[in-house]
Design a protein around this nucleic acid. Structure first.
Length: 289
DNA sequence: CAAACGTGGTC
DNA sequence: TGACCAAGTTT
């Protein structure tokens, strides 16, 4: 891997995202990483600004109610992420002096922080040298290194070893390298309509040299959405986000025709702590009654 | 390891 | 128009 090509490209092509700015705190980086899990940059950016303005440090967010956090999360999707981030903020404020931990192991012990996010925070917030593996990186490595059309099914240990093998020696370069690899996957080496003509790795890309063969691995599963519990849960929660306070059950009943599925989803939301029932039998966002 | 978990944009 | 995609984590 020619690091210079990639780092040079980063200098001219990287997007100016707020969580990449030097004044951004580790907390800002952590918030961005959680929001960006399965959610596009364009939808994250405005919400991220609102969050950092309102909760500039973990303890500030820890002091907010869960319901308030869920409202601020809006329609970013997968709202359990918001609840887990609130838990993580609470733990950071209580157990870590309001400072986001810098080591991967401690980060991974926090709710909602898995292997990717822990490494991303250690790398982008603290400049540590460690491999960061996300879907973009897996795709770039699959093509540029292995000459495959796309990454196969994830294999945590193998993926990690692959990326560690191409990480620059110098710690100063490692963080930028990881960011650049991700950025390349996001802007150039995309899943479809990849822009190979603009790729800094064009001349050394194994996929290019192999004649860009089609992906040969097992078909990826497509996530259904219409008619799933996910859709119903989303509709139920949306009622509460749109209401100023607790609502009677009838307001939830109208969002979905299938009683059985609706009730099941209502229970699951209560189980997940995304919803609560008041003493009067009304439904509310957690902590808002 | 597969499946569950939101939402909206794109081609 | 509907399938596919978007900086994953948890169970």
């Amino acid at each position: 891997m020619n690091h210079e090509l990639l780092l040079g490209w980063w200098d001219t092509a990287a997007r100016d995202l707020p969580w990449r700015r030097p004044e951004c705190t580790a907390w800002g980086v952590l918030v961005s990483e959680i929001m960006l899990q399965q959610t596009p940059v364009a939808r994250v950016e405005p919400i991220w600004h609102e969050w950092l303005a309102r909760w500039p440090v973990p303890s500030a967010m820890a002091a907010a109610s869960q319901g308030e956090v869920l409202r601020m999360w809006g329609k970013l999707g997968y709202p359990r992420r918001a609840l887990r981030l609130h838990e993580a903020a609470t733990a950071i404020a209580r157990d870590h002096g309001d400072v986001v931990p810098s080591d991967v192991e401690t980060l991974e012990s926090l709710p909602g922080i898995g292997s990717y996010t822990a490494r991303a925070v250690a790398t982008f917030a603290y400049g540590q040298k460690c491999a960061v593996v996300d879907t973009n990186v897996r795709r770039v490595v699959a093509r540029a290194v292995h000459g495959a059309g796309d990454a196969g099914p994830p294999s945590t240990k193998r993926d990690l070893r692959d990326v560690e093998a191409i990480l620059p020696e110098a710690q100063d370069d490692a963080a930028v390298f990881s960011a650049a690899l991700m950025e390349l996957g996001a802007l150039i080496c995309t899943a479809k309509n990849q822009k190979c003509a603009d790729c800094p790795l064009y001349t050394e890309c194994a996929w290019q040299q192999a004649g860009r063969p089609a992906y040969a691995g097992p078909a990826k599963k497509v996530q259904q959405f219409a008619g799933t519990d996910r859709q119903v849960r989303g509709k139920l929660l949306d009622v509460l986000r749109g209401a100023p306070g607790p609502v009677p059950k009838i307001q939830l009943d109208v969002v979905w025709h299938d009683v059985t599925q609706r009730e099941k989803c209502l229970v699951s939301l209560l189980d997940d702590g995304l919803l609560e029932q008041t003493h009067d039998g009304l439904f509310a966002l957690p902590g808002e009654h």
